[in-house]
């Protein structure tokens, strides 16, 4: 037995292929399982927070404080029948929610949870994140088209236009960050903030633009036009039911968490404690990361409970006529500051 194990450990295929593969799978699980749990409880948090803001209690029947509510919801969605509308494009109809969900998860590969705690520490991490988030639009467009329903299609069109528009200003915001860090690697970006200061202070206007843009990018209130219940009876996912709907739902919330994580990494110093002093810097990095992400997410819910929905032309005006020129100007401004103020890294 011992010989067999030793042989196994020394075998070439094991050392070169199987063991790294196993390690990667375990890492992936370590990342995805907590995220899925967070998604489940984010839905509960949303209902609770909005409930409190509106003088209601929110879910409080299933389990203590309603803590088992997400599980009950999940179980319900699992057990229902998946209805595929007639006249729809079957293959695409099923692929779309899966695509949304997968994209929301694979982006986490490059997010650093702590010093060195990142699945893939690639050079162009930020571009990877940006690329994945720009793909998110496909799940929605394909869903809208494959449903063969005009409400779904309209919702999808709105959503696609919205996401493409706000990506532009998001890209420019990211450029301002890159000007200072001189690196596209997310860990490097956090380390730069460790040496200097969190970007949220010098780049506050950019942070605000970024935060509003990620609200639009994730189709959240006040930019939730794609699923504007009042006019589109819930938009691109109107024809979806049970598991396929659940995947959309999970994907959307996972995306919210992802975008919050991105904002945390770029502007709030990632895994860093607020001050590098005794009690604070003893708390491990991932916990700080989770706390900051939670703070960002609370903002999502707060905004939803507070603001009325934008009209479509207002949304487009904000994206193209306000954010785009403003961020472009800031790119010039910050580039000038970086070059002439001597803030360039490396």
């Amino acid at each position: 037995m011992a010989d067999f194990l030793a042989g196994l450990i020394n075998a070439v295929w094991w050392q070169d292929y199987a063991a790294p593969l196993l390690a990667i799978v375990i890492y992936c699980l370590l990342i995805t399982v907590p995220i899925l749990l967070s998604v489940a409880y984010l839905t509960l948090a949303e209902r609770k927070v909005i409930g409190w803001m509106q003088y209601r209690k929110g879910p409080n029947v299933v389990g203590p404080f309603g803590l088992l509510q997400p599980l009950a919801d999940g179980l319900k969605l699992f057990l229902k029948e998946t209805i595929i509308p007639s006249g729809s494009n079957r293959a695409l109809f099923v692929i779309a929610p899966a695509l949304t969900f997968i994209l929301a998860l694979i982006a986490w590969a490059v997010i650093p949870f702590g010093e060195g705690m990142v699945l893939a520490d690639i050079n162009v991490g930020i571009l990877y994140l940006f690329a994945i988030s720009s793909l998110g639009v496909y799940g929605i467009v394909i869903a809208g088209w494959a449903s063969n329903s005009k409400y779904a299609f309209l919702g999808a069109l709105r959503s696609a236009a919205q996401m493409v528009s706000y990506e532009v200003s998001m890209g420019l915001v990211i450029v301002t960050v890159l000007i200072f860090t001189n690196s596209l690697n997310l860990s490097d970006i956090v380390r730069y903030q460790q040496e200097n200061m969190w970007f949220v202070i010098p780049l506050l206007p950019m942070f605000v633009v970024f935060y509003i843009s990620i609200l639009a990018e994730t189709n959240r209130a006040p930019f939730d036009l794609p699923e504007a219940e009042a006019e589109l009876v819930s938009g691109y996912n109107v024809e979806y039911s049970s598991m396929t709907f659940a995947l959309f739902f999970l994907g959307e919330y996972a995306n919210m968490i992802l975008m919050s994580g991105m904002a945390t990494t770029l502007f709030l110093g990632g895994w860093l404690p607020p001050f590098d002093i005794a009690p604070l810097n003893m708390i491990p990095g991932p916990i700080w990361f989770a706390l900051k992400t939670a703070l960002m997410l609370f903002g999502f819910l707060w905004v939803r409970a507070t603001f009325p929905r934008y009209r479509y032309d207002q949304l487009m005006r904000l994206g193209w006529k306000v954010f785009l020129p403003f961020t472009l100007l800031c790119v010039f401004l910050y580039a000038g500051i970086a070059v002439y103020g001597g803030f360039l890294a490396g």
Binding site: L127, F130, A131, S134, L135, V137, Y138, V141, A160, V164
Partner: peptide, 16 residues
């Protein structure tokens, strides 16, 4: 990455 961002993320969306 730029290929994905520009072509897949923007140009092809308009195409679609």
């Amino acid at each position: 990455m730029i290929l994905v961002i520009v072509y897949v993320g923007a140009v092809a969306v308009l195409f679609l």
